[in-house]
């Protein structure tokens, strides 16, 4: 595999006094897609939020392309090319679809993704571009959230709960587009509750339990049983 683009090195993350992550070591290589799985409260979202700078950590515990970014502000990290598609989509309700997308280009990174290419990816957004973003269906809102992140032409895409609360048919559509989304040279970290989907989309998985990495490995090598055991702490 090519060089490591993003890695965490004994990452500890806190919400006030509460520690959510304990010594998490994780790495993603350039162009790779990895999945993070784990039960609710395992620390998956915390991991992505720490990488994106929404939670401050020790500087050295998150490295991007060799630079320690653990204590950087979120907007600075976004400018470096790490884009988070947050859980629950977090669109801006007073802005239209197109305005939401335009905000994605705030960081000023240029490349393949711009309004045209995002509309090609999700044609339905073009039809709805003038509507308030929150008047869309959940799946369409997720498309806006993805498009908004793509507009920053990121090197690393962080998908938090990509299919949460969406109808299965919408999830299919989004997963069908995933290769197109990621193919533009981007690296991706996906959080997914559906282990089957996570295994299919990613080349490696990390399984978190109670803030610690319980299991990691290539999706080809790990068995369903190993994952179930790591996930629930007991053999199925």
């Amino acid at each position: 595999m090519s060089k490591v683009l993003l890695q965490t090195d004994s990452l500890n993350a806190f919400y006030g006094d509460f520690q959510a992550l304990y010594d998490v070591d994780m790495s993603v290589c350039e162009g790779e897609t990895i999945a993070i799985i784990g039960a609710n409260g395992a620390g998956k979202s915390t991991l992505l939020r720490s990488i994106a700078g929404l939670i401050k950590t020790e500087p050295e515990s998150v490295r991007f392309d060799g630079t320690a970014i653990g204590n950087w502000r979120a907007d600075k990290i976004a400018k470096q090319g790490i884009a988070l598609i947050p859980e629950g989509r977090q669109l801006f309700p007073s802005l239209s679809v197109e305005e939401n997308l335009k905000l994605g280009s705030t960081v000023g990174r240029t490349g393949h993704w711009q309004l045209d290419t995002v509309y090609q990816l999700f044609p339905v957004l073009k039809e709805r571009r003038t509507q308030p973003s929150t008047s869309l269906s959940g799946g369409q809102q997720q498309m806006v959230a993805i498009g908004r992140a793509l507009m920053s032409n990121p090197e690393v895409l962080l998908f938090d709960e990509i299919s949460l609360g969406l109808a299965p048919v919408i999830i299919n559509t989004i997963y069908e587009q995933l290769p197109n989304i990621i193919s533009q040279g981007a690296t991706a970290i996906i959080i997914e509750q559906d282990v089957g989907r996570a295994m299919a989309a990613a080349s490696r998985v990390y399984c978190l339990i109670e803030g610690r990495v319980k299991l990691e490995g290539s999706t080809h090598e790990l068995t369903r049983e190993q994952i179930t055991e790591a996930y629930f702490g007991v053999a199925a």
Partner: peptide, 23 residues
């Protein structure tokens, strides 16, 4: 564009900063 960023901050500070808006 700055006005857009401003509205975004009002709507959702976390998402705005994640998109590179310097709040």
């Amino acid at each position: 564009k700055r006005g857009l960023a401003l509205t975004a901050i009002r709507d959702n500070e976390t998402a705005a900063s994640g998109l590179g808006v310097n709040i």
